[in-house]
Nucleic acid binder design. Sequence first.
DNA 1: GAGTTAACTTGCAAATTGCAACTAATAATA
DNA 2: TATTATTAGTTGCAATTTGCAAGTTAACTC
Lengths: 148, 148
Amino acid sequence: MSDGRKRRLSGCPIDYALDFFGDRWTLLVIRDLLFGGKRHFKELMESPERIASNILTARLKKLEERGLIERRSDPDNRKQVIYTLTDKGRDLAPVLVEMVRWGGRHDPNSLCPKSVVTRLTRDNERLLADMRAGMADAVRTVKARARR
Amino acid sequence: MSDGRKRRLSGCPIDYALDFFGDRWTLLVIRDLLFGGKRHFKELMESPERIASNILTARLKKLEERGLIERRSDPDNRKQVIYTLTDKGRDLAPVLVEMVRWGGRHDPNSLCPKSVVTRLTRDNERLLADMRAGMADAVRTVKARARR
DNA sequence: GAGTTAACTTGCAAATTGCAACTAATAATA
DNA sequence: TATTATTAGTTGCAATTTGCAAGTTAACTC
C-alpha cells in the first residue's frame, strides 16, 4: 500500500495528503530537507530519530516518484547524491509549521524554543530561517545528550 | 509501536506530533470529529475512506489514552457512545486546514471546492464552518459515485 | 421475545517495519 | 598504486501492523 496504488482515494484533500505522508517517517525527511539544510542520504541518516537505511531508501524513492523531491548526483563528488525538494514539496512548509506549533504547545518535553512556537505564522519567512538555525542547535543538544 | 512506548522521541515537535498521528487513519478520524460533525462509532465507519472497525477501535482507544478525545456513553441511548475532541484535539484544526490547502492546490481530482482552498486562513472561523457544510456535499457526491 | 442496531472482538493472511549485516562504487590516504 | 574509508544503498529475516470477514454482546424497537 506504500505506493498508493491499491487504496482508492476519496477525493478529500486530507486523504490525498495522507497518501503522500501518512506514515511515521516521510514528514521527518521533508523537515530535514526543508529546515535542516540537508541534501545527502548520509545527512538524513544522522537525524536524531535514527531512520533505518532501507526505510529511508523507500521513502526517498516514493517521494521522487510522486514529485516531492528530485534526485541527482553531485557533479563535484560522484559518490554523493543530492536530494532537493520540488515546489510541491516546499509547499508543505505551512503544514510542518502548524505541526511545530501544535507540538510545541502541547509537548512539555519539547526541545523547541517557545519563542519559535508562539511567534505567529504571519512572518513565515523569518520563522523558517529561525527554525533552520534553531534546529541545528537542537541536533547538537540531542547529540550531547546521547554521549552521556 | 502504535502506543509510542517503544520509540524514543527526539524532542522535535514534529516527531512528537507524528507520535500521535503519524499513520494513515488518525487524522481522518479527527477530521470527521472536527469538521464532519460526527460523534458515533457508526458515523465514523461510514466515511468514504472505509476504515475497518478494528482499526477504528484501536485509533479511538489510542486517541483517548493520549488525551485528544473523550469517550462517554450517550445518556439518551445507552448503546451509543459519544466521542468528542478535547481542546488538544481541536487544536489540530490549523494542521488539517494546511493539509486541505496543500491537497487542494496539488490534487487535480480533489472534490474540495477551490473556493475553500484558496481562501486565506485568516478568517478561520468561517472557513471551518464552510468546510463542515462542504464536506457533507462531498460525502454525498462520493456515495452517488459509488452507486454507479 | 424476535429482530435490529451499535460498538466492538476475533482470527488470520498479507504487507510493512526495524534491525543488522553486507555490497558496490567512488574518493582519500600512504 | 595499493589500502582504507566513505557514501548510498541492498538483503535477509523476525516482529509488528494492517485489512478483511465473520462473530459477539448489550441495548433498543416492535
